[in-house]
């Protein structure tokens, strides 16, 4: 007898939103920055991104096989991690560093803790921080833009410090369009902003966290004595605020929580930049707030519908 009634549990209303669709949107949002990275640093940046993405995909597939979980490579989350990871490092990074970063990002931070949605911190961030701690010397030669030659050209030896560490800061317009030294994807604030606007229009992220993050960072940089506009356009702030601080799994779930999260990120970024021994504070600030997220969630718990507030 054929089945007349099908009884299943919720949800019964489906929207078209899948992880894959969201990830695809993020990739589209990252494209302007990718294009600009090729313009500034040459085709080598594509090699870097490709290596990073390839390694991330490999470790995602490998880890899921080892843990006997279904392989979710199709959902493109590893691709997004790979791109963001590459964006956090300079184009002069030796290619063998990307697989190591990918291991710590995907296999350790994400898969070891249970797969997508279970990571305790942003995977690309952890990967970048481990590399920063391990190979500080190898990833600190930031080439000047337009210093590349040829199709497979590496960069000529003209390196300069990032604006954060430089004595003479580039002008505001240069900072905005990315005409200065820095990591692959962090230089062009304009391109990242474009991507961010796209994501807001597509309802993938809300503008709350990025805006508050950047605003708080500007405020505290000014309090700590730096030029706020120069500060927010330097370093990886836009990349972090738009693409890493908005990760669903590692940020608080409620609006008050997200607010606290964004303020914390901005504050620590400015603090580390002003008083810490590292020129860049965004990575550590976001990581710190990622780890604090369960605590923030606990204190900003919403009252259950009809229930008593604790």
């Amino acid at each position: 007898m054929e089945r007349r009634m099908v009884v299943t549990s919720s949800p019964h209303i489906k929207s078209g939103v899948t992880t894959q669709r969201i990830m695809l949107d993020v990739l589209i949002a990252l494209t302007p920055a990718l294009v600009m990275s090729v313009v500034y640093f040459g085709p080598m940046s594509l090699a870097c991104v490709a290596t990073s993405v390839g390694s991330c995909l490999f470790f995602e597939w490998g880890a899921e096989k080892v843990f006997r979980r279904p392989v979710t490579v199709r959902d493109l989350s590893a691709v997004v991690t790979g791109v963001i990871l590459a964006f956090n490092l300079p184009v002069t990074t030796p290619l063998w560093i990307f697989p190591i970063a990918a291991f710590f990002a995907i296999a350790v931070t994400k898969q070891l803790f249970g797969g997508i949605g279970q990571n305790f911190a942003n995977p690309a961030l952890v990967g970048r921080i481990v590399i920063m701690l391990s190979f500080a010397a190898k990833i600190s030669s930031y080439p000047k833009p337009f210093a590349w030659t040829g199709w497979l050209g590496g960069v000529e030896a003209a390196t300069g410090a990032t604006p954060l560490a430089a004595e003479v800061k580039p002008g505001l317009l240069d900072l905005f369009i990315g005409n200065h030294g820095g990591a692959l994807g962090e230089v062009c604030a304009a391109a990242l902003l474009l991507g961010g606007i796209y994501l807001v229009i597509r309802r993938v992220i809300s503008p709350l966290v990025p805006v508050v993050f950047i605003g708080t960072a500007a405020l505290f940089s000014w309090i700590f004595g730096a030029d706020p506009l120069v500060s927010i356009l330097s370093g990886g702030l836009f990349l972090g605020a738009i693409f890493m601080a908005t990760d669903y799994a590692t940020t608080p779930s409620t609006w008050p929580g997200k607010l606290i999260f964004a303020v914390g990120c901005g504050f620590f970024t400015a603090l580390i930049r002003a008083f810490g021994s590292y020129p860049e504070g965004v990575s550590f600030a976001i990581l710190l707030m990622n780890i604090a997220t369960p605590l923030i969630d606990r204190f900003t718990r919403q009252k259950p519908f009809g229930g008593e507030a604790k």
Partner: peptide, 13 residues
């Protein structure tokens, strides 16, 4: 080598 492993974080890892 990879300095991470000399640092305390690497020890815990």
């Amino acid at each position: 080598g990879m300095l991470f492993f000399i640092l305390p974080a690497g020890a815990f890892f």
